[in-house]
Design a protein around this nucleic acid. Structure first.
Lengths: 145, 145
DNA sequence: TTATAAATTTGTAATCATTACAAACGAGGT
DNA sequence: ACCTCGTTTGTAATGATTACAAATTTATAA
């Protein structure tokens, strides 16, 4: 559970200088499955690093995305979320609780349309929207109370 | 090729009052495969309707999305695009020319992960990012000239 | 260690898409 | 023609993101 060590290794492997803020941001992302937005990352890290600036979060995130170490999730249009897992997997956005969760169990090769033969595909993002199990039940029970 | 008539029919079928701006917006979307953003729609329609306000474009688009007549495309994070085709199909975003194009030839049923059994899935969006055939060639030829 | 250069981080101001909202407008019914 | 209600408009507010210069830290060389 040493995300700091893990982060340092990933940065070195990617030939990105492991500065303090980069380590903090990547380590934070490695330690959560919540797909946080910039504000969430900022507020949580700010508690331990009072001098932290939001611009630094943006700097680090942009660099990490460019270097393909993390990925952007643009499932909602108001704000961008970030994910330390840059492999091809899909996300579910719950309209009820607003959470974004990982959906596994899909083979990325299923998404290679023959129409893409002539394209260079760098990234595949699959988004589902709807209601997660908990919110679905709650919605159906809205006749009570 | 009468997108105005088509738009009117779709609005009536969806029990949405076919006001002038709604007809203009839906008709515009039906007549293009460019997945335009709000500004594009606004600028193009403004030429024929000088009194047009951007707020009206937002009003109409929001209503049409709510009524499932069109769909939002949030493949880029700076701006939202819109598509009159609300069926499940995928989009390719070209990092070279910035275009968003439709990719057909994928069966939506392939995307039903067993993990989603307990979920209520309202929408599936599949995004590819990379380089389209034209931009791919151009990129590879960058040694010339 | 100290001096110097380079990169990073910070704070603030600017930008830009989107939202909020009140006033003006327009179609349908009386 | 008048009234009413929903639509459209214009403008101001919001909020995420970007730009950028100053302050700070890190790396390098003497």
């Amino acid at each position: 559970m040493n995300t700091k060590k893990q982060a340092e290794q990933i940065l070195r492997d990617g030939h990105v200088k492991p500065t303090s803020i980069r380590l903090e941001v990547l380590s934070y992302l490695l330690g959560t499955d919540q797909h946080p937005c910039v504000d969430q990352i900022y507020l949580d890290l700010k508690e331990r690093i009072p001098t932290l600036s939001k611009a630094s979060i943006y700097n680090s995130l942009h660099l990490l995305v460019e270097e393909h170490i993390i990925q952007k999730i643009t499932i909602e249009d108001e704000k961008t979320r970030y994910d330390a897992d840059h492999s091809t997997h899909s996300h579910f956005f719950c309209k009820g609780c607003g959470q974004v969760m990982d959906i596994e169990g899909l083979d990325p090769n299923d998404f290679k349309s023959p129409l893409l033969k002539e394209f260079e595909v760098d990234q595949i993002q699959i988004y589902y929207a709807g209601y997660c199990p908990a919110c679905k039940v709650q919605k159906e029970d809205k006749t009570d109370e």
